Computed example of a mutant assay.
Amino acid sequence: MEPIYRAYQEKDLQALIALMKQLGYTHSKHALLTNVKAVHKAGGEVFVAELNDIVVGCISAIIDIRLAEGTQGEIVSLVVDKDHRGYGLGKGLVGTAEHWLSQYVDSIRIRANSIRNAAHQFYQELGYLETKQQVVLVKNKHE
């Protein structure tokens, strides 16, 4: 059966929790639903890949605005279930996000953790070029 790529629906929440865990992030239903709502409120979208009525992948497409760089699309949180990798689902999800973003922006950025070498190669095979490396610094409110 061919995969279906579609916008997130609330019935997908449990599947997204499991997918985010495979990406290295643990979320409660409430926390992940809050994140999905925040993506939507900021003008972004979450997409899923579905096979035989089962969600096996997801991606988020956001609009990012910066003083120096202007407005760009950004693809974030791409993950395909470990048992469904290697079948083109990630490529399909990226294509879905790119198509949606192309309505709003002229360029799309992807950031991948420096240790995810396979992800770097995957994105480069899709035509993305490495333009810079950077360090991410975080200051939490309660520390």
Rank of each mutant, 00 (worst) to 15 (best):
S102L: 10
Q121C: 02
L13D: 02
N52W: 03
L33P: 00
L51Q: 03
Y8S: 06
A42N: 05
T131K: 14
E125K: 07
A15D: 00
V136G: 04
S60W: 08
N52L: 13
K41E: 14
T26M: 07
K139T: 07
L101D: 10
R66W: 05
H84C: 04
Q22I: 05
K21I: 09
H27Y: 14
W100Y: 11
Q133F: 09
D12Q: 06
V105G: 02
S28H: 14
L32N: 11
H30T: 13
M20Y: 15
T26L: 14
A38V: 03
L129Q: 15
G43P: 03
K91R: 12
R109S: 01
L129H: 02
A118V: 05
Y25I: 11
V94T: 06
Y104S: 10
K41H: 14
L51V: 11
L32H: 04
G43D: 14
Q22A: 09
Y25N: 02
H142I: 10
D83M: 09
H99T: 12
L137T: 07
G88T: 09
Y123P: 00
T96V: 06
Q121G: 03
T34K: 15
T131S: 10
Q121M: 13
R109K: 13
M1Y: 03
R6N: 09
I65N: 03
H99V: 12
A49K: 01
L13S: 06
S107Q: 05
H30A: 15
E125T: 02
E143P: 02
D53A: 10
E74L: 03
D106I: 03
F47V: 09
R66L: 08
I59D: 00
A18I: 07
G86V: 08
E45K: 11
A97G: 04
A118N: 13
E10T: 15
Q133G: 13
D64Y: 10
Q14D: 14
S60G: 01
Q14S: 13
W100T: 11
A119E: 03
N140H: 06
T131Y: 10
N140P: 01
V138K: 11
K141I: 13
T26C: 10
R85G: 11
S114V: 12
V136D: 01
V46M: 12
K29H: 14
K29R: 12
I59T: 12
S102H: 10
K37C: 03
K41S: 12
Y5D: 08
Y128P: 02
A7V: 12
K41D: 12
Y123I: 04
E125L: 05
V56A: 00
R116P: 04
L129E: 13
Q134C: 14
V48M: 07
V76R: 15
E45T: 04
G73R: 01
L23H: 06
V135Y: 05
S102G: 00
G44I: 13
I63T: 10
T34F: 04
V79P: 04
T96G: 01
R66N: 13
A15G: 00
A68I: 13
Q103Y: 11
Q72E: 10
G24H: 12
Y123G: 00
N35G: 05
L51K: 09
Q103E: 15
K132S: 15
D81M: 01
T96I: 07
I75F: 06
Y128F: 07
V138E: 11
H120M: 08
N113D: 14
I54R: 05
R6A: 07
A97R: 03
N35T: 08
